[in-house]
């Protein structure tokens, strides 16, 4: 059974699309910074594997 669809490939994206992607990347960077700086007690779940 196929769970993954065929990859949609877009060549030479427009400036408009690249701007949207850049905006999403900026948002991601901000979220990653927040994730890196979170205190242990702030996580929804914490697991320590032996």
């Amino acid at each position: 059974m196929a769970y993954t669809k065929e990859t949609l490939v877009i060549n030479n994206p427009s400036e408009q699309l690249l701007k949207v992607i850049e905006k999403l990347r900026e948002n991601k960077q901000a979220k990653l910074d927040k994730l890196r700086n979170m205190k242990p007690e702030e996580f929804s779940r914490r697991v320590i594997l032996s």
Partner: peptide, 15 residues
């Protein structure tokens, strides 16, 4: 599991 799908997208920006 059935009824869930992964849709991959690749954007190639080359000149």
């Amino acid at each position: 599991v059935t009824g869930v799908t992964n849709t991959p997208i690749r954007i190639d920006n080359y000149e």
